[in-house]
Design a protein around this nucleic acid. Structure first.
Lengths: 365, 365
DNA sequence: CCCCGATTGCCAATCGATTGCCAGATTCCT
DNA sequence: AGGAATCTGGCAATCGATTGGCAATCGGGG
């Protein structure tokens, strides 16, 4: 297919005649009031309530009438006003999604899964970002809560009590965290870590470190706990280094302490930290995985771009997002005492993805 | 900071007494009806309308009364019901953001900018994804439109006419595209491309290729046009290869044709394609930038993870998102004939970021 | 002491859709 | 044919907040 300058030219001419000016379009807009069910009712010659029923209680109305109304609606290009509907029903058909940091690639995948699950059921996602600040998050949640049917909190910085308070107010699901009394979607850290430890053990490592993430992060603790529990059973020593911010910088900042610790393999709280760590270490002329094997968590976008590509414990983030929303939807149904759509919640195991950043330790290789 | 098993244990005990079971929390939730201005009015001993005015027309009400109402509101933990407010005012305080593909990292940055600009003014973002499908996008836009005050379309697949139709319906801003008669936020491709061409010319390249993105993409065309216009002036030949999908795969798929074209430097429609191209070429044992220099567009997250890190024409995506929302907000104000908040729209120039994927061509080096 | 204007708060209509209740029309059963 | 059951569609109240118009109150000036 060729670049076609003519097409562009032609289309540009048309536009300049009539609507080259954005202001013109705007002016035109102002006049148009959106049609309501009253308009539809008038055209179809029925009562507004009949229109309402025809449009969302199929069968409740005589087929003939129903069709007449459908046609009137189509003719007027009627679309329902969600806000007006939300008032009597109390349901906005929206789900609030609260993220710690939109730019962290781990969230993209979750958002996509969530969006998919939501739009599948006719729900829309309302987005808010806490920018890793508990205060902003509380504020954001308060702002979001009244306009959504349910909340999904991802990697939240809120305290357990705040979360429970919110949960009493609105259906709520937390992701990557567990809070007593609140529905949670958390990938199983165990399987992936078992695989990963088996992997490094097989390579011959006997001492590993964990570069810790934020103190308040539930998932950080979960990963460390799992490591602490299992590594010794495989005959390995394990130390925690940190805490640090869950970003490239956080990883960079841990380098000195990692090297000083003398370990031959290191787990980082997440891929971002792992990558930051790796790049910083490499910039000091140190070989990865020769001198140090590095393992991340999550398998975010870009974790296979590095060289060596990052070995990581993958979390099924897309599924996590999907399930979080599905669970939220089922909570809404439950609130309405509607038979809960049966939740076939697959387990969410993590798994090791072996790439180039792990290898045998120097002493052996 | 040490891992503290006790803390966890303790907190777990508390929860198990009272709310270990999510169902218990849910049950508790059902009873609570949210307080309304009527409740506040009763407590404060005034008329609901007075409450409304006290809460959002500061000064209209006697200071004494106003304070009494504030206190009543606080006491009841009243928060306004946005849906109920939206009905009479016609404003939902939301902006709809429509993306082609949430998982494309280039959008993350835009989303963050948009979210920031929106929440700054008390607006919330409503998210929809078209998954690169025009049909889904049209549907999504229709679904979104009635519940938002304005729409922002990013890298939309819609036709010009569809966009104009939407624009007559709601304030609308398109990003990374220009449509006659519609407000648009588009980074200036010129400066970055000039820099990039100067860069490759200085390195000694005389022939470049452009690996094209989706046919329907306005930005794809804009970049190609700019290249086509400027390269010859610098004494370089330029060919277009494609079109292709704007992903890693799209880049991989272009490899054969790129190599066959005999060029020594290649621009790709975006970083994703550039990276896909680079990795595929490297996997064939071909050196980058030795045999082929590669340049991307956007400077997405991860484009500096590759080795060599990617030289790319950076677009100020965060600013783009911010400005798109700001413009949308100003359109809303304009519709309301409110004095438009003065828009200090900085220009959005692109700039070359030189990293490792460009170098002198073989013949010279 | 009266009048005037400003201030303050209330009344009631309104936004658009939903829904319980009811009445008239049909159908069905025996 | 009589009566019950079922269909249909209309009426009107309701969700929670906003807002134009009005009435009561108050202070001040003459």
């Amino acid at each position: 297919m060729w670049h076609d300058a003519e097409t562009q030219e032609a289309s540009h001419n048309v536009t300049s005649e009539d609507f080259a000016d954005p202001a013109a379009v705007r002016r035109r807009r102002r006049g148009t009031p959106a049609p309501t069910i009253y308009d539809v009712a008038r055209v179809a010659g029925v009562n507004p309530s009949t229109v309402s029923r025809a449009l969302n209680k199929p069968g409740r109305i005589n087929a003939k009438t129903e069709q007449r109304i459908q046609e009137a609606a189509k003719q007027l290009d009627y679309r329902i006003n969600p806000m007006a509907r939300a008032l009597p029903t109390g349901r906005a058909n929206t789900i609030g999604l609260m993220l710690a940091d939109i730019t962290n690639p781990m969230f993209f995948t979750i958002v996509r899964g969530a969006e998919r699950a939501a739009s599948e059921r006719g729900y829309t996602l309302l987005l808010a970002e806490s920018q890793e600040s508990g205060e902003r998050e509380a504020e954001g949640a308060q702002r979001l809560a009244p306009s959504v049917d349910a909340l999904v909190l991802v990697a939240t910085r809120l305290g357990d009590d705040q979360i429970r308070d919110l949960a009493e107010w609105k259906p709520l699901v937390v992701v990557n965290r567990e809070v007593g009394g609140v529905d949670a979607i958390v990938p199983e850290v165990g399987p992936g870590i078992d695989e990963a430890l088996a992997h490094v053990a097989a390579l011959g490592h006997t001492s590993v470190a964990y570069v810790s993430g934020p103190t308040g992060s539930w998932m950080n603790r979960a990963r460390w706990d799992a490591l602490l529990d299992r590594a010794p059973k495989l005959g390995m020593t394990v130390v925690e280094i940190g805490p640090g911010v869950p970003t490239l910088e956080g990883g960079r900042d841990a380098v000195t302490r990692v090297l000083a610790s003398g370990v031959s393999a290191v787990f980082a709280y997440n891929d971002l930290m792992a990558i930051g760590l790796m790049r910083q270490i490499q910039s000091q002329g140190i070989d990865v995985p020769g001198r140090l094997s590095i393992i991340g968590f999550d398998d975010i976008f870009g974790s296979d771009f590095t060289s060596p590509p990052l070995t990581t414990v993958r979390a099924p983030l897309g599924l996590v997002g999907e399930q979080a929303v599905r669970r939220a939807l089922s909570l809404i149904d439950e609130d309405l005492s509607v038979p809960v759509a049966e939740l076939t919640e697959e387990p969410l195991p993590t798994e090791l993805v072996v790439r180039g950043s792990t290898g045998p330790p120097l002493a052996i290789g």
